[in-house]
């Protein structure tokens, strides 16, 4: 039998056992009461697999035909419907072919991340290196402004200006 929440009739989804001075205190709470108790933070992040499945479901019911008939990757022939089945793309070009429907999914799967910030293969050319570097610096700058570290922000802004001058 599923255990009920200590406070209401909903099923308990959060369980905790605390040992306090030799006393065992058990708590069994539903999502809502658990977050009221501070046992759980209301989660906006859903685990990735669930997210993919939900995404697939939403899109399959909302737009039954549009993407299946319209879009196939020109390079490998994969359709978006096929991608929905196992979450695997067919080839590097699929990212271009499905850029629009993928953007939404990527943003949710990667905590809002929409653009690559990180290593750039040397072969990809200086242009891309520069892009990524700038993107990284701008992200740091943004974080500094949000964190109200204006001294750091000013320094980063100078760095970015200098970097832009040097590399153009």
């Amino acid at each position: 039998m599923k255990r009920k929440c200590d406070r209401c009739a909903r099923p308990a989804t959060h369980h905790s056992v605390e040992i306090n001075q030799g006393q065992k205190i058990e708590k069994h709470l539903c999502d809502q009461h658990a977050s009221e108790e501070g046992l759980a933070i209301k989660s906006i992040n859903t685990p990735i697999n669930e997210l993919l499945t939900n995404f697939v479901k939403i899109h399959s019911s909302d737009e039954p035909e549009r993407r299946t008939t319209g879009g196939a990757c020109e390079n490998c022939g994969l359709t978006f419907a096929q991608f929905r089945k196992d979450s695997l793309l067919g080839c590097p070009d699929c990212y271009k072919a499905f850029e629009e429907p993928l953007s939404n999914l990527l943003e949710r799967a990667h905590e809002g991340g929409t653009h690559h910030i990180g290593k750039v293969p040397r072969r990809a050319g200086a242009g891309e290196q520069r892009q990524a570097m700038l993107m990284r610096m701008r992200k740091q700058l943004n974080a500094a402004v949000v964190g109200e570290d204006y001294e750091l922000a000013a320094r980063l802004r100078d760095d970015i200006n200098r970097f832009e001058e040097e590399t153009t």
Binding site: H115, H116, G118, V120, Q131
Partner: peptide
């Protein structure tokens, strides 16, 4: 590799 998405992977959960 692509500018926007980084290293391209079969599953989009690894891309970047």
């Amino acid at each position: 590799y692509a500018k926007r998405f980084g290293y391209l992977t079969a599953c989009p959960t690894n891309v970047g």
